[in-house]
Nucleic acid binder design. Sequence first.
DNA 1: GCCAGGCGTGCGGATTTCGCAGCATCCGCG
DNA 2: CGCGGATGCTGCGAAATCCGCACGCCTGGC
Lengths: 175, 175
Amino acid sequence: MHSEFVASRSADPKDSRDARESRHGGTPHLDAVSLAIIEQLQEDGRRPYAAIGKAVGLSEAAVRQRVQKLLDQGVMQIVAVTDPLTVGFRRQAMVGVNVEGDVESVADALAGMDECEYVVMTAGSFDLMVEIVCEDDDHLLEVINRRIRAVPGVRSTESFVYLKLKKQTYMWGTR
Amino acid sequence: MHSEFVASRSADPKDSRDARESRHGGTPHLDAVSLAIIEQLQEDGRRPYAAIGKAVGLSEAAVRQRVQKLLDQGVMQIVAVTDPLTVGFRRQAMVGVNVEGDVESVADALAGMDECEYVVMTAGSFDLMVEIVCEDDDHLLEVINRRIRAVPGVRSTESFVYLKLKKQTYMWGTR
DNA sequence: GCCAGGCGTGCGGATTTCGCAGCATCCGCG
DNA sequence: CGCGGATGCTGCGAAATCCGCACGCCTGGC
């Protein structure tokens, strides 16, 4: 069963100890089995626990417990993701932001806005990069020129309006 | 007009007709009910069909059929998304790319690379923006300096290494 | 008028999920 | 060394969910 997916590893119960080794790092680390479970759910978020169990070599109940824990810990979430265009959001943009003063507080302020779907602090010629999702041009204009620039500490912004989304995956760990 | 679907909301039969009106655009458009189903699945990708049905005013079987169609049409997908850091990808970056010649062919080439998680064509001082997910600095360096710049048509790149991810949602349509 | 197609409903039967013992292992401690 | 306590897996039934299928109801085309 579950043939190999790392051969030796994890086939034998004793290995689970080694596999679970929290290999330092700050965050609670994942063993090979949890990784495999995540991969299964990245292919299909609704795949039955029993099927996953068969694939990774665990019982249905064990898979269920692990998934629940991963969810509780916030390591992963199982959600529907959509193509924004078909859901009625026809204008998107990436906005680079330069900040004077505390970058993080500005980031928090932007993160609080509904239209900001993605906020990340960066090194380089921008301090922040923000992805904006809007319904139309007016909406986009308002968000960028009124709301974002109104945030205290925002020195300047540069916008990159999306022309065409070419790729969007959620397959981390599946390589 | 399938009479009423539960008193709850939009109880008026006429609404469903109007709602389904493909308010043209390019893509096959979604009515209010499908929107509501998507919202449910954005909160929890594993929510049972019956529960969704109760929330949107449809039978379990009808929800199941709609979900299946949305999946088949590629309007949405139900997947596990993870925090890259806990899954072992400790270096991420946004890369702005300038292109000479055909932008789309370059975009396709980049989209073909595993490390490129997100590829979008933009208007502004970059022709393309690409999000890169890597295991470590060496990996990141190799992807940016060897692989991306090696693509024919790439004139220049500018990198923004991620320092801290502040927000990442998948809640389009939930507003 | 009539038929084909799209969509929803209801209903059993197969599957899946869920909660709960019961074990085995590992770890800290006197 | 021996003893909890904690953790993680397994194996069950029982309950809930999923799934396929046979209708019925509109709508649009001919």
